[in-house]
């Protein structure tokens, strides 16, 4: 913790608020995430987790509040610009490009989000190495519609990785998977984290969050109710209330 605090945060969220009509989905949320951290984000359904992700990745506009990435205000930037700056994400419900093969899905990311100009051959190499790392190499030429649930999840992570992210946001990448598949995806995320990628993981599967995270934040009704080490957060009275539903 002290070591992380000494560095400039990779992502800095300052008093972020998001309203839909009269409904406040996020209420004055502020948090710093240092580079290299494995950050777990939990909270009951409708607590604002995905909304927060959408605000970070740029799918939603935020009026009050600022998002700083590597010391730069990215609040006015469109999603694709944020992606190019190094923020990648997966989706809660996988959103593959359905008319494409797995390889083509990744090529979109390499074509548009690559940071330097590289040849087509080099991009293909990068793509294959990512697919290999994700255990999808054999599926490179399969249509995205023909993948199993766990393969889809992995492909989403692979596509996100192909954008060369510094921050990867995984939105419930393990939902609906069997326990062995959960371990598989968790190992993948761990190995990505060891490659100097900061990861925000949203998850309902508590064991996965506890095992994965350096730090955990719990949202309820758009507010941060607890933040700290996994065991601190789990011990928190309000977190337990939010989950048990008092």
């Amino acid at each position: 913790m002290t070591n992380a605090e000494a560095r400039v945060p990779l992502l800095r969220i300052v008093s972020l608020t998001k309203r839909f009509g009269g409904f406040t989905a996020l209420d004055n949320v502020s948090v710093d995430i240092p580079p290299g951290e494995r950050f777990g984000l939990i909270g009951p359904n409708g607590s604002g987790k995905t909304t927060l992700i959408n605000c970070i990745s740029g799918a939603f506009r935020t009026e009050p509040g600022t998002v700083l990435f590597r010391d730069e205000d990215i609040t006015p930037l469109q999603p694709h610009v944020r992606t190019r700056r190094g923020i990648a994400r997966s989706f809660q419900i996988p959103r593959p490009f359905r008319s494409m093969t797995v390889a083509e899905n990744l090529m979109v990311a390499l074509d548009f989000a690559a940071h330097e100009h590289v040849s087509v051959a080099q991009r293909r190499d990068t793509m294959m190495s990512i697919l290999t790392q994700m255990g999808l190499a054999s599926k490179a030429n399969a249509s995205a519609t023909k993948l199993s649930q766990v393969e889809l999840r992995k492909m989403e992570l692979a596509r996100a990785m192909a954008t060369h992210p510094k921050l990867l946001i995984s939105d419930e990448a393990m939902a609906g998977l069997s326990s062995s598949e959960v371990d598989e995806v968790l190992d993948l995320l761990m190995s990505l984290a060891s490659q100097d990628i900061t990861i925000i993981m949203i998850e309902h599967i508590m064991q996965a969050v506890m095992r994965f995270s350096d730090r955990v934040m719990c949202l309820d009704a758009g507010k941060i109710i607890a933040i700290g080490t996994p065991s601190e957060v789990m011990a928190n009275q309000r977190v337990q209330e939010a989950y048990l539903g008092t």
């Binding site: 990745s57 694709h80 992606t83 989706f91 959103r95 490009f97 494409m100 548009f112 989000a113 596509r159």
Partner: peptide, 13 residues
């Protein structure tokens, strides 16, 4: 065409 939000989040302008 396949998915506008996913495209945007994959770096497509």
């Amino acid at each position: 065409r396949d998915d506008e939000l996913a495209a945007e989040c994959t770096g497509v302008p």
